[in-house]
């Protein structure tokens, strides 16, 4: 009885997948062993049968219906694929086309101007900040005035301010140091 490995070799021989020396060995086997020859015949018949009788299957829906399904999907994909690159491409076209050059340039300048004006038109912030210190006796406040390009720091005696309520009356003349 021939082995599975030998059967697979016979099949490979049938399919033209063996080297010349291996093919010779299989030919010798088939010449000397009836079962090997029968395996070859069986595989060959099955292969011939399949190769010459491929089933022909027709699509069950009409040409128009099938194409509509494909067309709709393609169209949907194309609509979705409008990307940043398309915008860049359009912009490039607008810039390279002299007819559009002046209005496009004017629009860009206007947009940049709006951006810059918006940035400079921000309200100037003057603010008072209390600064924490580790000292139990001395406290401090800072005050920044953007328009005057000024930065002021008050250092005061905590004991004195506690007595006088610092919330309402922040600074005493004798505590004030300008830095």
């Amino acid at each position: 009885m021939i082995t599975l490995e030998q059967k697979l070799k016979i099949q490979a021989y049938l399919d033209g997948e063996l080297s010349q020396s291996e093919a010779k060995k299989v030919e010798f086997l088939m010449a000397s062993d009836q079962e090997a020859k029968q395996v070859f015949e069986e595989l060959k018949c099955a292969a011939d049968l399949l190769q010459n009788n491929e089933p022909e299957i027709k699509m069950p829906i009409s040409r128009e219906l099938f194409w509509n399904r494909i067309y709709n999907e393609i169209q949907k994909d194309e609509d979705e694929s409008v990307s940043v690159f398309d915008y860049i491409r359009h912009l490039k076209y607008l810039l390279l086309n002299t007819k559009y050059l002046v209005p496009v340039a004017a629009t860009i300048i206007a947009l940049i101007s709006i951006f810059l004006i918006k940035d400079f038109a921000k309200p100037i912030e003057d603010y008072l900040v209390s600064i924490e210190t580790t000292s139990e006796e001395v406290g401090s406040y800072s005050f920044r005035v953007q328009s005057e390009n000024m930065f002021v720091v008050w250092i005061y005696n905590k004991d004195k301010s506690d007595e006088k309520n610092i919330e309402s009356d922040l600074i005493y003349d004798d505590d004030l140091f300008l830095q």
Binding site: C45, L49, E54, P55
Partner: peptide, 17 residues
């Protein structure tokens, strides 16, 4: 081992089916 003879009796369409 089954050696099938494709030419034996069957119409082509029937064989394909």
């Amino acid at each position: 081992i089954e050696i099938v003879n494709p030419a034996q009796g069957l119409e082509r369409e029937e064989l394909r089916a």
